[in-house]
């Protein structure tokens, strides 16, 4: 690999790649999810923490390995996953009884010349949500799922890496290319930053979801603006009153 000073960063350019991380937890059950032999007595759940592409696309061309830092009480808490098959998640399976923060560190491909970056994921084993209704709804599901969408930004990437990110995957190496399932439009193989147009049950992140979120934010903003307008009116009324009082005060003084 060429030494870093041989390459230039692409000024003013930002490239992003979407990915999904999160955890899926299942309660042990004699029938549906039996305890594997050797599991400690007090463990109540089996869980998986993962980092993968949206719609199971390949991310290995920019993400070389992922390090999951689990709780210290778990034997061998630093788990490093690399050399996975493209299109499969970087993941760790474990069993346990408690929730904790998982420190996830992404290592990029050597071409990127970028330092590894860290983010956190809170392992969810129990139903969660803002309201009781949400929690109750989650209780009915077969597994507690906490998936998050995230976008990896490469600010001013190095040229070589930029070229890698912006050229289609080389085809014809005998491996058939996988078609995207979510109605994706794109002819550039799997190295895209596009996300599916519609959501499917196990792929909740899509343009559709994005639109919904924007709509929700906009509705919230509209609400705030209504409140703002009334607040401004109130302000005005108060200012007027103050002015009047001042004038009266002056009148008394004078």
């Amino acid at each position: 690999m060429a030494p870093p000073n041989n390459q230039k960063r692409m000024k003013g350019i930002q490239v992003f790649r979407p990915f999904v991380f999160g955890s899926t937890a299942k309660l042990f059950d004699p029938i549906t999810n039996p305890k594997p032999p050797g599991t400690p007595e007090d463990h109540t759940h089996s869980w998986t923490v993962f980092v993968k592409g949206v719609d199971d696309t390949d991310i290995t061309y920019w993400c070389r390995k992922v390090q999951f830092k689990l709780h210290e009480s778990i034997p061998n808490p630093l788990r490093t996953i690399e050399n996975i098959n493209p299109g499969t998640p970087f993941q760790v399976h474990e069993t346990g009884w408690g929730e904790f923060e998982i420190n996830i560190k992404l290592y990029y491909t050597p071409e990127s010349l970028e330092k590894p970056q860290t983010f956190y994921h809170h392992l969810r084993l129990h139903p969660y949500g803002l309201t009781e209704a949400e929690k109750d709804a989650m209780k009915l599901l077969p597994a507690i799922v906490s998936h998050c969408y995230e976008e990896q930004l490469f600010n001013e990437p190095y040229e070589q890496f930029y070229n890698m990110l912006t050229s289609p995957v080389e085809r014809g190496k005998g491996k058939g290319t996988k078609m995207m399932k979510g109605g994706m439009v794109g002819s550039s193989g799997e190295r895209t930053a596009l996300i599916p147009l519609t959501s499917r049950p196990d792929q909740p992140f899509s343009r559709e979801t994005e639109k919904l979120e924007i709509k929700r934010l906009m509705e919230a903003k509209a609400k705030i603006q209504v409140m703002n307008a009334s607040a401004q009116e109130e302000l005005k009324a108060k200012e007027d009153e103050l002015k009047r009082l001042k004038a009266e005060l002056k009148g008394i003084v004078a």
Partner: peptide, 27 residues
């Protein structure tokens, strides 16, 4: 890159970017 390609590859141009390197959108 054409505009369409930029969209596919998630490329965008900015007047200035705070810090170069890898970052996460949510942050």
């Amino acid at each position: 890159l054409t505009e369409e390609e930029e969209k596919i590859y998630g490329v965008s141009h900015h007047e200035r970017i705070g810090a170069s390197g890898a970052a996460f959108r949510h942050e």
